[in-house]
Nucleic acid binder design. Structure first.
Lengths: 144, 144
DNA sequence: GTATCTGCAAATGGTTTGCACGCTA
DNA sequence: TAGCGTGCAAACCATTTGCAGATAC
């Protein structure tokens, strides 16, 4: 199973014109399976379990490469640091808590009609995201 | 006209629970009338024409206050620095150029049905934005 | 074989913070 | 006049950059 999964990721990277390394595979797998929309630091901490020698700089460089070819999105300016989200997953939107900075996926097909836009105002569109910001349930509970 | 406009902005700040200062009025007017979704630095350069003594720190503090009360949005993680956009304008979305970082408004009523959302997944929503990223016409032209 | 990637460390620079003074309400 | 905002400057820290050695293709 591990093997099959890994082979898939190799193909994905190649198809997007990226050179394949073990570090990049590990980083993209973490992003792909994560549900927390991790920061670079968080990805770094997780990759370190498998590659103790990896550096934070390498993580940033890999994330930037993935972003350039459209394999991930940078999410939300409400948060203090950049948070990353793998694309290649079903289209979805994000709920961002302005207090604790939790980011939760939000699925709503009625918002996704325009899922794969092509051109608007002369722009060639390569991606889209819908961001909602507000207060998450637990932060609502702690507000006086 | 100046007087009337200014009076309106005073009311707007008060209604949002903010103490009114000439600096804040100037900053919010610039944001409100700007079409370029300026950065903090850009706002600073513009306010300086009227208030040469103002500091960049004050601009950041004012922008943060405006954000806290929902008078502006922070736009796009595709850009290097945070860009600001006054709310209180008709709902619209943003086209962000991944190359030159131009941000253009995009009006599409079919995307705005959910304009004033209230609650999703237990989140109390206070704002939303739709971001498209891609290449603007002039950057498309310079690509080989 | 050569371009690209990695690891390390230093540099960068957008943003935040602390403090003394001034202004708003 | 009490509290909040401003200006200034230093600090912070997420992210970028440069480089030498290693790896992908």
């Amino acid at each position: 199973m591990e093997g099959r999964e890994e082979k898939d990721f190799i193909a994905i990277l190649r198809e997007h014109g990226l050179q394949v390394t073990y570090q990049r595979l590990a980083i993209y797998q973490i992003l792909y399976y994560s549900k927390e929309h991790p920061s670079a630091e968080s990805v770094y901490q997780q990759v370190r379990k498998r590659f103790p020698m990896i550096s934070l700089g390498t993580v940033y460089k890999a994330l930037e490469k993935f972003h350039e070819v459209g394999l991930l999105q940078k999410v939300s300016h409400v948060t203090d640091v950049t948070r990353y989200d793998a694309t290649l997953t079903p289209p979805h939107h994000h709920l961002v808590c302005v207090k604790c900075q939790k980011i939760q996926d939000y699925h709503d097909s009625s918002l996704t009609e325009e899922a794969t836009p092509a051109e608007k105002n002369g722009f060639k569109i390569i991606g889209q995201q819908v961001l909602f910001h507000g207060y998450c349930p637990s932060c609502l509970g702690t507000m006086v």
